[in-house]
Amino acid sequence: MRRGEFITAGILAVLSLYMMWKSTELEIGYIADEGPGGGAWPFWLSAIMLICTALIAYNAARRTSPPSRSTEPVLDAEGRKMLVLVFGGIFAFVALVNVISMYGAMLLFLFYYLWFLGRHSLLLSATISIVTPVVFFFFFEALMRVTMPKGMRFTEPFYNWLNTIIY
């Protein structure tokens, strides 16, 4: 945890510096008759952030913050595995949206989570994975008229057929 506290503060410090630098694209000082420039607000807030990261690191060095005193790892082996499997699944879900459509990606993600991670029965996993996207489709496309990404061209005939039901 202790090393993690320093690394987190370091990453946030770099982020603050980047945001300060990015803010200077606009005027960060006071423009006469115009008030503070457009970059002033984010610049000075990022500067305060930078000071905070220094204080966080100082507190960690003196071991006054709980994470800097803890000897536990940030993530144990099981936690790491969980993060890779769960977050990896979500990542793949979002990556697949533009390939096999929001609904297709949802179906695969649910099946992966329920069957592979949750170890539920094949029947239950398949039922939930298929029913959920169908319900979402009719809720969003038909009821709320919100169109979700439909992926690549090859899904078109399928969605054309579904659209004939709702329109």
């Binding site: 949802m106 989570y113 329920l114 170890r119």
Partner: peptide, 14 residues
């Protein structure tokens, strides 16, 4: 929880 969690993830993304 393994049924609830993926549902929440799906709802969040959508």
């Amino acid at each position: 929880f393994t049924i609830l969690a993926p549902m929440i993830f799906v709802l969040s993304i959508v």
